[in-house]
Design a protein around this nucleic acid. Sequence first.
DNA 1: CTTCCTGCAAAAGTTTTGCATTAAC
DNA 2: GTTAATGCAAAACTTTTGCAGGAAG
Lengths: 143, 143
Amino acid sequence: MTETVHETTDIRLREEGQRYTGQRRELVELLANEGPLSIPEVLRGRGGLKQSSVYRNLAVLEHAGVVRRVVTEGEFARFELTEELTQHHHHLICSTCGRVEDVTVPSDLEGTLDRTLDRLARRAGFADVDHRLDLIGTCGDCA
Amino acid sequence: MTETVHETTDIRLREEGQRYTGQRRELVELLANEGPLSIPEVLRGRGGLKQSSVYRNLAVLEHAGVVRRVVTEGEFARFELTEELTQHHHHLICSTCGRVEDVTVPSDLEGTLDRTLDRLARRAGFADVDHRLDLIGTCGDCA
DNA sequence: CTTCCTGCAAAAGTTTTGCATTAAC
DNA sequence: GTTAATGCAAAACTTTTGCAGGAAG
């Protein structure tokens, strides 16, 4: 399953004339296993990675459509694999420690949401609307 | 209606031993009229305001529960009045120009959302969950 | 007259970039 | 052998802070 992710990444990068190097593979592997991570978390997660290369490689992967920037309340940017490589999901964010977990909502609610929001957005003159739904609360550890 | 906002702000600030100065009033007025604004937008919006004072005053207002930081994809932080002073709402974000508009969803959907998400979050060990729902698309001007 | 606010300039902290070296194809 | 990726150090950029002067109560 994560093998598919690597294959897709490889293809996407080649399409842009870029190489799927060991470091990039490590990044993708990390994000596939541990979800949305900030740069400090990435650096802690894998010893050898260098900060500037991590930023650069995440930018490359973002441009290739493999990774996306997640906006959170914290001071650092977070990155995750795009939904094409995983699945549509949402975030459970701890407002105390900043930790982020993935969560999916029941598909009937997801469907209702999609239809309703699309209608709303059109009415406001917006097109091609996607939604971002995050839950902010206090996680078990911080309670 | 915006008079109520000013009164509430005044009270909140006094409770913290702070003053509702002209500059703070201007900030609140701006946010009340134009929704979520970034610092550059604020500085452009009103000539005389100084950057460091704006940051400082927004921090004060945030601490007083009058203003909250909105996280967006852009490079600057955005600020808006808290929902206690306005009403529960969501954001319509243009992924091209970064503009942010307020939008409300039908209250039945809002209710369903609230109940379902609360259940989900509890199951994951999270408490006191609030949700943040944003719509990202292309606005009329950028289409 | 005491306390808080403002503005300037400098600092802090995150992210980006230039350049020489190393690795991939 | 050619083109791209890496690491280091320095730069850029947003946000925060120290300090002296000014305003508010």
